[in-house]
Design a protein around this nucleic acid. Structure first.
Ligand code: SF4
Ligand code: SF4
Lengths: 143, 143
DNA sequence: ATAATTAAGGATATTTTTGTCCTTAATTTA
DNA sequence: TAAATTAAGGACAAAAATATCCTTAATTAT
């Protein structure tokens, strides 16, 4: 479904979004500890998220990463798209090079609804939704 | 979603299931041509499907692969499970080691419905469904 | 200014996935 | 029986994904 890189990215974004007001910045070390991910690899992912304007980074003591803009306006779909690209949204379930309604793969008639369900969900779930649940102890970023 | 290996496997199974009555066997060469896949790699996949009792193979002239049993009783879910394992059905969307309803990941409340939708579809779509559409020119195994 | 802290980025390493090649085994046809 | 055909299987290769290490750059605190 999602690449491992993308899963780390999603959890990292949620963690940063879950930080308390007044202390909205977390270091690489904090983040990879919070989501239980390899630190150096996570660094690369965070760099990519900064490049893609989903995070803002600050160097130096008390530096770290914070959400770029409002968490309530960042949707899962943007993170997935940033890391994994749009293949999940637009690619063929069976890997056909070209997907046209007039030349559908063998699972298209069944798969279309699921893809729409999935992309609808990703486009309607924002970071605040998920961060709130983490803060309320309803959901978790690591096991 | 599915590994490339799994996509090849699905298309290959559908192709074999689409063969006309009385000639229900196809060679590796036929199959990889029909689904536009690398021959040697496809050989490995077909071997695995034979090992998993989804296909039957016969060596020698006019040998090849045929569906083991009734195509109408083989569901997409079996192929996916055989090749990719059950992680798509049971694994965590965000990669948490353990998934428990009491310790859900941050997307669980949104993801659960989609996973059920997907697994429901995979468990209710059989090879005959798809092979018929291919035979009727409604769907295609390659581009 | 200096030292300490933290992210950026390049190089490299490991693992997994995808893919190829070649030899052997089984079966059929001549 | 011999030759041809086709799958099985082992060894290897290439590419992609995942992961680590080290140096540099920026910022802050002393
Ligand atoms: S039609 Fe088939 S090929 Fe096109 S997107 Fe749907 S799943 Fe993919
Ligand atoms: S709860 Fe989260 S962790 Fe468990 S399965 Fe659902 S998605 Fe995965």
């Amino acid at each position: 479904m999602f690449s491992k890189t993308c899963k780390y990215a999603i959890n990292a974004m949620i963690y940063v979004a879950s930080l308390p007001i007044g202390n909205e910045r977390a270091s690489l070390k904090d983040i990879s500890k919070a989501i239980n991910s390899p630190e150096a690899f996570t660094a690369k992912i965070l760099q990519a998220l900064v490049r893609d304007d989903l995070l803002i980074s600050v160097k130096g003591p008390h530096g770290g990463f914070s959400i770029n803009g409002k968490a309530s306006e960042i949707y899962l779909a943007q993170i997935v798209d940033s890391i994994d690209g749009n293949l999940l949204f637009t690619g063929c379930a069976l890997g056909l090079k070209k997907c046209a309604e007039e030349h559908p793969c063998a699972v298209h008639y069944k798969f279309k609804a699921i893809r729409e369900h999935l992309t609808g969900m990703l486009h309607s779930t924002n970071l605040t939704d998920m961060a709130d649940r983490v803060n309320n102890g309803i959901s978790f970023l690591k096991y």
